[in-house]
Nucleic acid binder design. Structure first.
Lengths: 193, 193
DNA sequence: AGCATGTGTTTTACCCGTGAAATAGTCGGG
DNA sequence: CCCGACTATTTCACGGGTAAAACACATGCT
């Protein structure tokens, strides 16, 4: 994720069945090679989880590479863009704490990024009048324009990359991921146990 | 990852159609809230890519949290475990270069991890007799035992987490991800363009 | 009012990964 | 035999993230 991986981290329970649709299932990816290696060494092991988790990790890594390309051209990291995007899409001002929650990152990381982004003139800071601990942040005009300029290009590029999958499979995939994600999020922090 | 994110990074083309199976599609996750916010601000934007990429990123982040739990108990980071796992599953010795390719990380990162892991007595180093530039690495008995001890626990925990999805959906998901991943990998490094 | 407690934000010290440069060695001419 | 080009690995300087501690302030109780 910085630092994503694609290695041997296991992940699933499925036997690798094919999708409901009608595309060619005989494909092979890095993950299936890894799974075969494990099976050869530990034949009794249920490598099912790898089929899902390994692939999600690897897809995430590759897709993030794809996202980075347009952003680097604009001189932003993905983390910075996430922060600006949160301010843009919510419309109203946010506190550092809000931003940390919104971008799923630590408060310290948000503080650092805010410093850089305000220095670059993309974000403005305003102290709360009632509670002097809190700060309110909003995009400057330049910040808003930057986000609005990048976003369409970003989405366009991503659409192109994803077009390796036919539209019906994209829909199925989005649906399945929604189911998985909503349930994982519902688990709360039981995942860390 | 780590530093993984779940924010506004866009990602898809699908309209969020439901899976082929028969589960409840009316669920809501963080990503759909984000997409709604963007739609409110930029109604003309095709937010499709977010439905897939955003969810893959977020799922990856959550699932990685889940993977970390068993590993931290064993005093390993995921990156370290990936390295040990590569040595374990291939069976034979690997060079640092091999390991970098196998774990999708930079040579420098591999060097650092190898130093720590050899100091901990989990990995052994042997110089190539013909070509004195290259090193060959193998697991020590302790290293092998450690991996073999962790792996079943790891897979078991992951199986439990993934059981939030019914088995048939797991199969569909694995199949769709295979299709996506194999095609993304087929794109080579055109993604960075 | 005065103080304990809690919360929002920043600071600090540190870990880890990366790209680029440095190092060490091979190999095929000439 | 020596050179130039190439390859494998390590070192270096640095950016960015994190947890925990430090601050700064608010709030409620007495």
């Amino acid at each position: 994720m910085t630092a994503t991986n694609g290695g041997p981290t296991p992940g699933g329970d499925a036997t690798g069945a094919r999708p409901g649709g009608g595309s060619d299932p005989a494909r092979s990816d890095t993950v299936s090679a890894v799974v075969r290696q494990w099976q050869a060494v530990h034949p009794q092991l249920d490598t099912g989880p790898m089929e899902i988790i390994g692939r999600i990790n690897r897809c995430a890594a590759l897709l993030q590479q794809a996202e980075d390309a347009p952003l680097r051209r604009a001189g932003l990291s993905r983390a910075e863009f996430d922060l600006l995007g949160a301010l843009r899409r919510t419309g109203h001002e946010l506190t550092p704490g809000d931003l940390a929650r919104e971008t799923f990152s630590s408060g310290a990381a948000v503080t650092k990024r805010l410093k850089q982004l305000t220095e670059r003139g993309l974000v403005e800071r305003r102290g709360d009048t009632r509670d002097r601990r809190v700060a309110h942040l909003r995009l400057t005009d330049a910040g808003r324009d930057l986000v609005d300029g990048i976003l369409p290009e970003q989405l366009g590029y991503e659409t192109a990359v994803l077009s390796v999958l036919p539209p019906d499979e994209q829909g199925e995939l989005a649906g399945l991921l929604t189911g998985l994600l909503s349930r994982l999020e519902g688990l709360g922090n039981a995942l860390r146990a």
